[in-house]
Every structure is written in structure tokens, then in C-alpha cells.
Simulated scan of single mutants.
Amino acid sequence: MSRKKLPIGIQNFREIREEGHYYVDKTPFALRLFDEGKYYFLSRPRRFGKSLFIDTLAELFAGREALFRGLHCTSR
């Protein structure tokens, strides 16, 4: 069994998924954003994945289903 690479410094969801990097699924949080409200302020410390999360949302809205296979949002 080979280990997945860590996505150090990568803020692009597509690159992480297509190149087989380790990814912690944050799509449950994205689905909550869609279902539960209007306005959000993403306040997190530096280097906490804000850019990656925004890129993940962009890919969800673009409908790139293949990138999300095996993640929480496709099991819904």
C-alpha cells in the first residue's frame, strides 16, 4: 500500500484530487453552507485552508462531479 502525498502549499482542489494527494473531506461543511443561511464570514488563522475551501466551493458550483467521487457530498 502506497502512501498519499501531503498537499503542502497546494490551494487548488482539482490538483489535490487529480494528483492523489491526501485530502480531508470538508464537503459536509460546504453542504451546510448551502442549506443553512445567507451570509458567511470565513475567519480563520493564516494557513488554515480558507483558499482551498473557497476553491472547493467553486468546483462544487461548477458541477465537476468527477472531482467529488467518494466524498460526502456525492453520497447525499
Results as ranks from 00 to 15, higher is better:
S2G: 13
K4Q: 12
K5H: 11
L6W: 08
L6Q: 12
P7D: 05
P7A: 12
G9K: 12
G9H: 11
G9S: 08
I10H: 02
I10P: 00
I10M: 05
I10T: 01
Q11E: 11
N12R: 08
N12S: 10
R14W: 01
R14I: 02
E15M: 10
E15T: 14
R17H: 03
R17M: 11
R17Y: 02
E18Q: 15
E19A: 12
E19V: 04
G20L: 04
H21S: 11
H21Y: 15
Y22I: 05
Y22R: 14
Y22K: 13
Y23P: 00
Y23A: 04
V24C: 04
V24Y: 12
D25G: 08
D25E: 09
D25V: 06
K26F: 04
K26I: 06
T27L: 02
T27F: 01
T27G: 03
P28W: 11
P28D: 05
P28T: 06
F29N: 10
F29R: 12
A30L: 08
A30E: 00
L31P: 00
L31F: 02
L33R: 03
F34E: 12
F34A: 11
D35E: 15
D35N: 15
D35Q: 15
D35F: 10
G37A: 07
G37K: 14
K38I: 09
Y39F: 14
Y39N: 15
Y39K: 14
Y40K: 14
Y40I: 04
F41T: 14
F41I: 14
F41K: 09
L42Q: 11
L42H: 11
S43F: 06
S43M: 14
R44Q: 14
R44V: 10
R44W: 13
P45L: 10
P45W: 15
P45S: 10
P45G: 02
R46H: 07
R46D: 05
R47C: 06
F48D: 09
F48H: 10
G49I: 06
K50T: 07
K50F: 05
K50I: 04
K50L: 10
K50P: 01
S51Q: 02
L52H: 01
L52A: 02
F53K: 05
I54C: 07
D55Q: 07
T56A: 01
T56L: 11
L57C: 08
L57R: 07
L57S: 04
L57W: 02
A58I: 06
E59H: 15
E59V: 06
L60E: 01
F61P: 00
A62D: 15
A62Y: 13
A62H: 13
G63F: 07
E65G: 07
E65L: 09
A66K: 15
A66F: 10
A66I: 08
A66V: 10
L67W: 03
F68V: 03
F68G: 01
F68M: 04
G70K: 07
G70T: 02
G70N: 03
G70M: 03
H72A: 13
C73K: 06
T74I: 09
S75W: 08
S75P: 00
R76A: 08
R76F: 09
R76K: 14
R76Y: 13
